[in-house]
Design a protein around this nucleic acid. Structure first.
Lengths: 218, 218
DNA sequence: TTTGCTCTCCCCCCTAGGGGGGATTTTTTA
DNA sequence: TAAAAAATCCCCCCTAGGGGGGAGAGCAAA
């Protein structure tokens, strides 16, 4: 069985590299190249492409948007994110967009093959260092593992979303209680719930988490 | 005495508005317009322009950079920042760059005139709402008033700079002490000093302050 | 040499934060 | 309508955080 594959990256040079790495894997045939997300979507929808290796950072239409679009309109296509970035936000967004795998740009052919095979079995594949990044964030709690696959906002109730920015401002429970016309115990309960949801050990860590994950907007 | 003035903004529309507002002030003559910082610097250095009304957000060379450059190479030029933004970071950076005044884009001619006259006397001018923003940050402490005109990093000792990122991570005093091979009391002292320096009331506020002011890099 | 800053550590005292429950009412959703 | 989730409040207990202060050692500039 031949895997008909599209490679998407705005760096010509990297497309060359990917082409070479893929040439070392049997059963993979590169049937196209695209240098931005829009073109990639077009190509996939109007062909029998089954696999996409997708860069994240591209002009016009980035890899995350393109992945989300593709998965919505043609869910059977397998998408592997290929990227230089291994920070939490990128991984998280790509996972949410529906990517089936996530490998780094310095990946060799053996690992890429492993990715193909793992995804063929219906599972998801992540590079070991990606897993480390995820693990650093998530230790044990079930909820916090769920947080990876949900927008963090979706985990917060509306009251919690009200309290969050006040905590970030450094207000005490009593001050927050006064502002929201509720009892201090209630604020304490809410804060405890938020900390547990994200598996954070104190409010300082929560502030960092909130600021880095844009939890303060709505 | 006529004030030879250059106006700098990348929005043509706003240049029109500024032109109109300035036309209502006697003794101000618009001798040029620029749509980015680089051009503005060129124009000021090669002419007898005495005043610059400078936007902050512009492509290529922003107003903060341009202001810093101009003040370095021709300090006698009076620069008034004109901007939509009244957040702490923008004001702080513009003050550091050497701007003589800071007014908002919705300013009328009376206030702009006041700015010209105040700066003529050798003082600095800030819009009332700008002052409010500054006041919100700075209540009483002498040190924290100084913090406005210094890079915050310059206020931190090297030990404090080591402790800062660990506090932001949410580590407890005991954990930090263990990492740095010092006693917990010492960590507590350092943290107290940092809080006093920036006039912040708890570690949550410190985390926010540190992240928003890039205090974690070196 | 004196002055001042940093780093280190300590004291006392009090409050806010956080772990661990549980209970109630209201609202949402299946 | 029944079940689930959210919001409200409470209990006990203990620890970490923060206010205020001091003190000695080391170092560097004035």
């Amino acid at each position: 069985m031949i895997r008909k594959t599209l490679i998407v990256d705005d760096h010509k040079l990297f497309l060359e590299g990917l082409r070479y790495v893929l040439s070392q894997i049997s059963n993979v045939e590169i049937v196209g190249e695209a240098t931005n997300g829009e073109v990639a979507i077009e190509m996939v929808l109007n062909s029998d492409i089954e696999w996409v290796l997708m860069d994240i950072n591209m002009p016009h239409c980035d890899g995350i948007t393109a992945t989300a679009q593709l998965k919505k309109r043609k869910p059977e296509v397998k998408i592997i994110a290929v990227t230089m970035f291994e920070d939490y936000n990128n991984i998280q967004q790509m996972v949410r967009a529906g990517a089936d795998g996530y490998v780094l740009k310095n990946t060799g052919s053996e690992e890429l093959l492993k990715a193909f095979e793992t995804i063929d079995k219906g599972e998801c594949y992540y590079s070991p260092s990606i897993m480390r990044t995820l693990m650093r964030r998530n230790t044990s709690s079930v909820l916090s593992r769920n947080a990876l696959f949900l927008k963090p906002q979706e985990l917060l109730t509306s009251r919690e979303k009200e309290i969050m920015p006040l905590l970030v401002e450094g207000l005490t429970s009593a001050e927050i209680a006064e502002k929201l016309f509720i009892s201090e115990s209630t604020v304490i309960s809410h804060r405890k719930n938020i900390l547990h949801k994200f598996n954070l050990k104190n409010t300082s860590a929560l502030v960092k988490f909130a600021l880095e994950n844009n939890l303060l907007l709505p």
